[in-house]
């Protein structure tokens, strides 16, 4: 770990320089909604006390539609062609801990036994410049899932606001090399090491361990009937989420004898997600699907990959059409768990 300093003005200049240098630079759009190459060039989003974007930065690593290969059928002779991947080096700036942490979490599922190079190549090709967060609302719960506003998980370089500048902490070799390569934009940091300042709240909103333990034993419980009752079965929650990663594989025809096989975002709340060709559907109700969503995030993924499939960003709750609040449900589970053990 190394500490450097970068003035706000220099950060803008660095981004401009990178763009000219054929980097793909990704920041937050002027409306604060999502991460894009068409980001706000004034870097107004580099304030740590504003809400996170409505849509996570996942869409730049795990694409909403990814071409897997192209096929062509020449009178029965099949020709398969690899897709052309944007090989430009990518720099992502302004991501909060609740975004950056998703990359190592997702890496687990995309790499057990079979390595998904579409995801891996994008991550390897990127420098993630994360930023300390000073925002906190009733939907946030990064602390409760083992992260914090200071979490460097998933960042290559971590920025900590310091007056009109940022303290730049190098987290990975990749980050170190990046700072060395663009050293002219940085200066030595001579101040005290930044304090691991406390998060907005000391008291935990829920205790993850007791929630997990309750989930281990309560696959059948009336809680689930109520939790999913007004769910509309849309994919909003999954699609804004930094860690949801379910996908579909489809062929899209272009003309009669050529086309593309694509990997598209899918969501466990969609009623057709698990439906068999026979018509049988293991998760045929909203209640079952909602149970799957919570259980996958807070139990199954942890059982399998020792990670919680949630960064506590609160996006799904802020955007839910029927205001289902995942934090409220987790707090409720925590309460049920305590009332039954006491």
């Amino acid at each position: 770990m190394k500490l450097m300093k970068i003035e706000k003005g220099n950060l803008s200049k660095l981004m401009e320089h990178l763009k000219k240098d054929n980097f793909r630079v990704i920041g937050v759009t002027p409306d604060g909604k999502r991460f894009s190459e068409k980001f706000d060039e004034t870097l107004n989003f580099m304030q740590s006390d504003t809400p996170p974007t409505s849509i996570s930065f996942k869409e730049h690593f795990f694409l909403k539609t990814e071409a897997l290969f192209y096929y062509k059928n020449n009178n029965g002779a099949i020709d398969l062609k690899e897709p052309v991947i944007d090989e430009r080096k990518t720099v992502v700036i302004g991501a909060r801990p609740c975004d950056t942490a998703s990359l190592p979490i997702l890496s687990k599922v995309f790499n057990w036994d079979y390595a998904d190079d579409f995801f891996n190549r994008r991550v390897e090709n990127s420098i993630i410049i994360g930023m300390k967060c000073n925002y906190q609302d009733d939907y946030c719960f990064c602390n409760e899932v083992g992260l914090s506003q200071n979490s460097e998980k998933g960042s290559d370089i971590f920025l900590i606001p310091d007056g009109d500048a940022f303290i730049a902490k190098t987290i990975t070799d990749k980050g170190n090399k990046f700072i060395e390569e663009f050293a002219i934009f940085f200066e030595e940091y001579t101040g005290n090491p930044p304090a691991e300042n406390k998060n907005g709240h000391d008291e935990k909103k829920f205790d993850y361990e007791s929630v997990k333990k309750w989930l281990d034993n309560n696959f059948e419980h009336k809680f689930w009937d109520e939790a999913g009752e007004t769910c509309l079965s849309c994919g909003q929650c999954a699609f804004v989420c930094p860690t949801c990663h379910c996908f579909d594989i489809v062929d899209e025809q272009c003309g009669t004898c050529a086309g593309v096989r694509a990997k598209n975002w899918d969501a466990c709340q969609f009623s057709l997600f698990t439906k068999h060709a026979s018509g049988h559907n293991p998760r045929d109700s909203r209640e079952k699907r909602y149970r799957q969503r919570i259980s996958h995030k807070f139990k199954y993924y942890n059982d399998k990959f020792s990670e919680i499939l949630c960064t506590g960003c609160g996006r799904c709750s802020r955007g839910c059409p029927v205001s289902t609040d995942i934090l409220e449900l987790l707090e409720e589970i925590d309460q049920i768990a305590h009332s039954t053990t006491n």
């Binding site: 849509i55 909403k64 509309l232 079965s233 849309c234 994919g235 909003q236 999954a238 699609f239 804004v240 579909d248 489809v250 899209e252 598209n264 975002w265 969501a267 969609f270 057709l272 059409p321």
Partner: peptide, 30 residues
């Protein structure tokens, strides 16, 4: 993002099977 929240929240979108979900034939690329 094709999350279909627009469809699911709409009181007038009530088809048993939405044309977007039909696969035989597929009318709309998914």
């Amino acid at each position: 993002l094709k999350c279909y929240a627009c469809r699911e929240v709409c009181p007038m979108c009530y088809c048993e099977q939405c044309i977007a979900d039909k696969t035989e034939p597929r009318w709309i690329e998914s």
